[in-house]
């Protein structure tokens, strides 16, 4: 049972991270100004659909995850996506991890966990 919960959590974390990374790739795939054509091209972008698929699977995994553990604990584990998205943003898009950025992201994660308790 515990292994199943951990696997569900990790799979959900992967889906959230892949989803956001894919959305970022989709958003920067064209340098066009934002007009009707931009959205039309974006609609057929494979990154966009990877992101949407990823989120859809993540949603189902989250529901499954919630059926095993209480919401407060789920939020505590679920907020790890804030950290993983920052790390992959750094690796893939060369987003600088300055001291203040890491501090800010850390505080937000802590805040989400505090709200989630009880």
């Amino acid at each position: 049972m515990t292994i199943l919960i951990i696997l569900l959590w990790l799979a959900n974390l992967c889906c959230d991270t892949i989803g956001q990374i894919a959305f970022k790739y989709a958003a920067i795939s064209s340098h066009n100004r934002i007009d009707f054509d931009y959205w039309r091209i974006l609609l057929f972008n494979r990154w966009l659909w990877l992101g949407i698929t990823s989120y859809a699977i993540g949603f189902l995994l989250w529901i499954a995850f919630l059926s095993y553990i209480p919401l407060s604990q789920a939020i505590l584990l679920g907020s790890a996506n804030i950290i993983t998205i920052m790390i992959f943003g750094h690796i893939l898009f060369k987003e600088k991890l300055t001291f203040f950025r890491v501090l800010g992201v850390g505080l937000i994660t802590a805040g989400v966990i505090i709200v989630g308790i009880g």
Binding site: T98, F100, R101, L103, G104, L107, I108, V112, I114
Partner: peptide, 23 residues
């Protein structure tokens, strides 16, 4: 704890804004 968490989140966003300003 909701109010406390909200304050911590706000602090985090403040530091993110500060980070952007510095960059």
């Amino acid at each position: 704890n909701h109010i406390l968490g909200a304050i911590v989140i706000l602090c985090g966003v403040f530091f993110l804004a500060l980070a952007e300003k510095k960059l």
